[in-house]
Amino acid sequence: MTAVVERSDTVVAHPDDDRSRRKRRPIWSTVWVWIFLAPTIVLYGVYTVYPIFASYWFSFVEWNGFEESKTWVGLRNYREVLADPLFWNSFKVTALFTVVAVPVKVVLSLLVALLLNSPKLPLRNLFRTAFFLPVVTTTAIVGVVMQFVFDPADGPVNRLLLQLGLVDEGVSFLGHSSSALWTVVAVYVWKWFGVTLIYWLAALQTIPDDVYEAAQIDGAGPSAMVRHIIAPLLKPFTIIITLLTLEATLKVFDLMLTMTNGGPSFSTEVVEIYIYRWAFAATVPQLGFASAAAVLFGLFVCLLGLLQLVGIRAARKSGGMR
């Protein structure tokens, strides 16, 4: 961002038009500038900047949301959140979900992207469309439909398994705490696979065709091509794509709420569902308590965001060296 500011500074400071510029920029333009910024300042201030500060304030009070009265309780909410085994459970579920979903999605989509990137492959645009289709659909609706697709008695998945003779009776994928999370991971990977695929295809497109041709002339087979040409050139992109995927994976509220609602017995309760349960789904909402949990998790996500900045910078550096 600093580069942006500096560049426009030099433009303005250009000696030629310094005087004529002043003539062309009457005072009314400053007024218009602020009029143009006003909608963003008001909306962004009320719905993004204020909430960030307010959630800190809420996390220090006891408040049920029905009454105006908020009682200052200091760090009590934080102590209670940190002492709640279910908070740590939700943290663990989120971590587990991320640690499994991200590598599976990144690696699988890379494999498909390598196949789709070949110009000789017939129907490649059709395949790309098919893999991208789930991305545009509404997550909450897909989640509801998936409840039926994985139905233990009549869902198509179990029908297929029964017909193939792989199981004797329908498996309750979403009904057991041992399988529910993995079922959601599978649906999640399926739903957002297309985004990572497009990332990889965009990355692969940055490798010019003559690099492949030169390698081919030198006698490189497909495996040597991947190992010595594609892998090193994709390295900076791998960091960026993994980080983008990681950040997106932390937002699974829609799918989780509609597929499992955090159950069975909290086995799929990610942090977002935990916050939602205390803030909106409880009979007596504990907004202070929920805010404390939100602040803790928000800080964690910000930390990952910082990591992302550092990662991208590192990726740029390793890309620039070539």
């Binding site: 009320v46 719905y47 909430p51 960030i52 307010a54 959630s55 809420f58 939100a294 602040v295 928000g298």
Partner: peptide, 21 residues
Amino acid sequence: TILVVTLFVPTGYTIIPVIDI
């Protein structure tokens, strides 16, 4: 600066103040 800094704030976690306001 404000715009760039808040780029990383997850909007899902600001839902309680948004509802309140």
